[in-house]
Write a protein that binds this DNA or RNA. Structure first.
Lengths: 161, 161
DNA sequence: GATCCCATACTCGGATAGTTGATGTCCGAGTGAGAGGGG
DNA sequence: CCCCTCTCACTCGGACATCAACTATCCGAGTATGGGATC
């Protein structure tokens, strides 16, 4: 029922990338040290983001990651599903069809009523995450943090090349 | 990210119980065979429901489970959380505090902005499940299924004592 | 000074473990209902 | 006919085994950059 921690890391990395100039690459190592997480494992999350087309990557020295789209075009749901895969809390195994007092030829409505309810809840969850993107979050952060704090962060990341 | 299948079983069992006369106990064995799931493992889910006060239980022969409240007072969220425990998809590990270019004395807002967004999504999910209860579902079922189908089901369960 | 080559730093992908949690099974203890025997 | 006891079916709770997924870690292959060597 809980998302893997790579999701948290991916979200924080995307936010960090959205603070940088759009054409700058940042290495996995820099992102890992910045967030205090294991570099090699974080790499898996970033690879998932790259595979989903949310970030660009370049090889070699000065290589690394940068956002592949504008911050307003990357929703939280995009990031979560890139790392976690398709998100669905409920998996219906159709146990209603095991009912021993119904004939095998009995007709069933196309979807189990219980599954329908659970899916509705999942949809509400996704809707909430789709409505939030990196640009909105960035604006919240610039309101909350001092310019100095933000600047120090971006400088630190860019100096680590 | 996925709920355990005990949640599905618990939901179906509660719906079945809500179809029965309120004072009738049904054994684990009957519920397990009715749904085609392992009896001993289903028992764990039912115990969780009993612990949460959603169902009553009696020992001995003719023992079993019955609803402890009126169907309209048992929401889907009650059942899900009884079996699954507190539901939360996102666990914030506060990696924002690992930022190496902030002093240790730096002040942080009480909640990580990213966690706030994720929690909002979780709340939307819970709100949806809180709005659905056993009575509403039961009314949906009586509309959808024939009286004969429902009657057969309750008779089968009651005859298995 | 221009060109070529090589070392370096990085990403990518696969292989490999350890740990946790879900899934499922088994068994003994406790309990209450009903049957059967004795008064 | 009444009461006691015994058996049985059931729940409860813990112990145990299995399996999948998450959480890492490590290493080799491939690639682009930049510096140094060569012409």
């Amino acid at each position: 029922m809980i998302l893997r921690n790579q999701v948290e890391w991916a979200l924080h990395c995307c936010v960090a990338l959205s603070e940088l100039p759009a054409d700058q690459y940042v290495s996995t190592k820099a992102l890992a040290e910045f967030h205090g997480v294991p570099k090699e494992y974080l790499s898996k999350a970033l690879q998932a983001l790259a595979q989903a087309g949310l970030v660009d990557t370049t090889l070699g020295p000065t290589g690394g990651y940068r956002l592949a789209k504008r911050p307003e075009d990357i929703s939280f749901l995009d990031i979560v599903e890139a790392v976690e895969g398709p998100t669905q809390t409920f998996k219906c195994t159709e146990i209603r069809k095991n009912n021993p007092c119904l004939k095998k030829t009995a007709k069933f409505s196309p979807m189990c009523s219980i599954a329908k309810v659970m899916n509705r809840a999942d949809e509400a969850w996704k809707r909430e995450l789709r409505s939030m993107n990196l640009k909105i979050l960035r604006e919240e952060l610039t309101d909350k943090l001092s310019d100095d704090q933000l600047q120090k962060g971006t400088d630190w990341l860019l100096s680590r090349r």
